[in-house]
Write a protein that binds this DNA or RNA. Sequence first.
DNA 1: AATGATCCCAACCGCAATCTA
DNA 2: GTAGATTGCGGTTGGGATCAT
Length: 269
Amino acid sequence: MGRAPCCEKMGLKKGPWTPQEDSILISYIQNNGHSNWRALPKLAGLLRCGKSCRLRWTNYLRPDIKRGNFTKEEEDTIIKLHENLGNRWSAIAARLPGRTDNEIKNIWHTNLKKKLKNYQPCQNSKRHSKINQVSNKGPTTSESSNNSNFSTNNSTSTKQHIKIAPNSPQLSSSEMSSVTLVVDDSQMVTIKEEKIESSSSEYFPKIDESFWTDKLSTENNMVVGHDQEIQVREENVDIFTTSSKMEEDMDFWYNVFIKTGDLPELPEF
DNA sequence: AATGATCCCAACCGCAATCTA
DNA sequence: GTAGATTGCGGTTGGGATCAT
């Protein structure tokens, strides 16, 4: 996969765009669209590389861009989304109509990061370490060993256990905690957080993609999201991860539980 | 008023994913 | 199936604006 040669080509202009260049780009795209960014500057008569044109258009000239300061609501949204998605600016921008990833990235680094230093609205801020498979070995900590409802026991309870393994902010970075969301018949949710010993890799062994292709064909799985599956067993529901999208959704659910106590509705397929 | 520090944001860089021939 | 072209994305930078001394 070779990299496209870009602005180093002789004669191509770099740096801030002039109003003239902007108007040339706008009128060209309005008349011809932007099916090929690389060819565009030549066709439009701009001494810019295609990449520069694309950036200028998507970050500044696009007609649907909302200009002006971010509202409090937008800032709160960014903070919440960043909590769930991390530095995935384009994903955050997709949820904020009229705002670009670049703009959000800038506002984050200049304003919001500082705000968050003074105020930590959610205790589980950076839990983006691996969310790993729930092992049927069960808990290894002294406390969690009391969690008799967990995993593959033979209880006839109808409680559902959704177990994930985020890093707890209360614990040092070298430690890991697991969170079990216990959902009973009446949709009542209980959250249990447990410290996991350093041998957590055993407790949450990693799985590869083949796990799912194997499992899906042989076991009773309920698809609940783009890349995620909840494996339904008789008494409980274990969540496994197969992709970063899964982590996002797990974070989302976790945060809804933490903040509202409500059981979020799972997406339908 | 001068100057250095800091803030802010548009633009660039480079990697990786995706597309296409 | 593969290599090259294109696009998308996140990190970083440059320089003007503003603030503090």
